[in-house]
């Protein structure tokens, strides 16, 4: 099981390393989206601080969504995916590894850059830390639920838009708890409960996302 995870994780990271552009583009997209909002709403500092958490989180959701097609589509097209399904390795291990690779190349960079965007919005230091923690905890949920959405729409026409339709409503709890943690910290309330709820959400999403992704991959390859 562990060997299978390490095997697929290493391969996916190696592939991602040789296609750095993909991961980088997602990151740039995230920065652009977050930089657009002040131009639409006005740059009054109080207002910016108030919308910061929401804007950054919605930006992260959209960036994560944009990165989903590359999770399985290329492997489906070149035949690697069916090799993984018929292989000697348990499918859940393969899927865990692929989702982990996706998070390491998408969620983690998003989390690391989020505090920088928070600075743009004038968030104070402790709120920046909370933002970092919340995005770190929340993005694995996006990868897990997103993987299920990407697997369900594999080989379907209009897959990209459809994936958004399927997974964005399911991202709501991550958005609420994630942005809520930052807002709470801004108004002097302890962000702990929000972060705990994010953790609980992750604990639910892990088995659910894994099961749904494995089942959807089998359907897509049937």
């Amino acid at each position: 099981m562990t060997a299978a995870i390490v095997l697929v994780l290493r391969r996916d990271l190696l592939v991602a390393l040789r296609r750095k552009g993909d991961a980088l583009n997602v990151l740039i997209f995230f920065v652009i989206v977050a930089s657009l909002f002040p131009l639409g709403t006005g740059a009054e500092p109080g207002q910016l601080r108030a919308i910061a958490a929401g804007v950054i989180w919605v930006g992260a959701l959209l960036a994560a969504l944009l990165s989903l097609p590359r999770l399985f589509a290329a492997d489906l097209a070149d035949g690697t995916l069916e090799q993984m399904v018929v292989s000697a390795q348990p499918l859940p291990a393969v899927v865990v590894a692929k989702i982990a690779a996706h998070w390491l190349t998408t969620g983690l960079p998003l989390a690391l850059i989020a505090p920088l965007l928070g600075l743009q919005y004038g968030l104070p230091g402790d709120a920046l830390l909370v933002l970092l923690g919340a995005v770190l905890l929340g993005t694995p949920v996006l990868s897990l639920i997103g993987a299920a959405g990407a697997a369900l729409t594999l080989g379907v026409r209009g897959a990209a838009v459809l994936t958004g339709l399927l997974v964005l409503p399911l991202f709501v709890p991550a958005l609420v708890f994630g942005a809520g943690a930052v807002t709470a910290s801004l108004s002097g309330i302890a962000p702990g409960p929000h972060l705990s709820l994010l953790g609980a959400l992750l604990a639910v999403s892990l088995p659910l996302g894994l099961w749904a992704t494995c089942a959807a991959l089998r359907v897509a390859l049937d």
Binding site: A148, L152, P169, L170, V172, V176, F177, L197, A215
Partner: peptide, 24 residues
Amino acid sequence: RAGAILALVGVVNIPIIYFSVQWW
């Protein structure tokens, strides 16, 4: 089959979404 998987994911998520929206 794909719809069934989505519906089952949805049914687990509905209470979570409902709770999160109330919390919000």
